[in-house]
């Protein structure tokens, strides 16, 4: 596909996500997913999840991070710049131009109705994405282990109110050694000499301790 065509596609996708996303960056995520995964097929669902996760570990606005990377992956630096500019320009200009009409806008029942009627739609889109990520979790880690990890994530995020970026980092850190560790556990239960576990223990560090404890538990319950 020609470069001009690619840039055009990026522009159209980012224009739509930019002017239709209500309620700030995070509620725009399902729109990004639709454009990138379903409409233009730039990435598959799994890669989209990975991009979203990495974007979440970094600070700053989420929507522009997604726009920058999706644009970059398709058309390099030019793509990234195009994506971000098209995504934010219309509403940035609207802020400046519309400020005079502010009083009118704020108290107009029409504007109020418009904003409120979009909330349920956004909730549905987010809910569908939540379900998709859950089923991906089950597919990747198995139903029990996956659910256990989701429960730990819920505990950290909702009950302990930890910063999402920190939680993602903890899970990523543990993910580095997850397979190695799982293999070592399987070997040990098969009665073979255990060489990998000590190294994995050291590499795991503080970050993964809580989550790996859960994992050990669930893995053990799996074994006959």
């Amino acid at each position: 596909m020609s470069r001009g065509r690619t840039l055009w596609e990026i522009s159209m996708a980012m224009l739509r996500t930019g002017i239709l996303g209500y309620g700030g960056g995070p509620s725009t995520i399902p729109l990004f997913r639709y454009e990138a995964v379903e409409r233009y097929r730039w990435v598959d669902n799994e890669e989209f999840g990975q991009i979203l996760a990495v974007a979440n570990t970094l600070p700053g606005p989420i929507a522009t991070k997604m726009a920058a990377y999706l644009g970059y992956e398709q058309a390099g630096l030019m793509g990234a710049v195009t994506a971000v500019v098209v995504h934010i320009l219309p509403t940035s200009l609207a802020m400046v131009v519309l400020f005079g009409a502010l009083g009118l806008l704020r108290h107009s029942p029409v504007v109020k109705g418009v904003i409120e009627a979009v909330d349920p739609v956004v909730a549905v889109m987010l809910g569908v994405m939540a379900y998709e990520f859950l089923s991906k979790t089950w597919k990747g880690l198995g139903k029990w282990v996956g659910t256990a990890f989701a429960a730990v994530a819920f505990l950290l995020l909702v009950v302990f109110q930890l910063n999402p970026g920190v939680v993602v980092l903890v899970f990523l850190a543990y993910g580095l050694v997850h397979y190695r560790w799982a293999d070592a556990l399987r070997r040990r239960s098969a009665g073979q000499p255990d060489t990998g576990a000590a190294g994995a223990d050291a590499a795991r560090g503080d970050a993964g301790r809580q989550t790996s404890a859960t994992h050990q538990q669930t893995s053990i319950t799996h074994q006959p």
């Binding site: 990975q50 996760a53 809910g127 990520f133």
Partner: peptide, 19 residues
């Protein structure tokens, strides 16, 4: 690959919270 697999449950929970 392990990182990719492990990050899914966190994103899922974040999405549930946003919803």
């Amino acid at each position: 690959k392990g990182m990719t697999a492990l990050v899914q449950p966190v994103i899922a929970v974040l999405m549930v919270v946003l919803t």
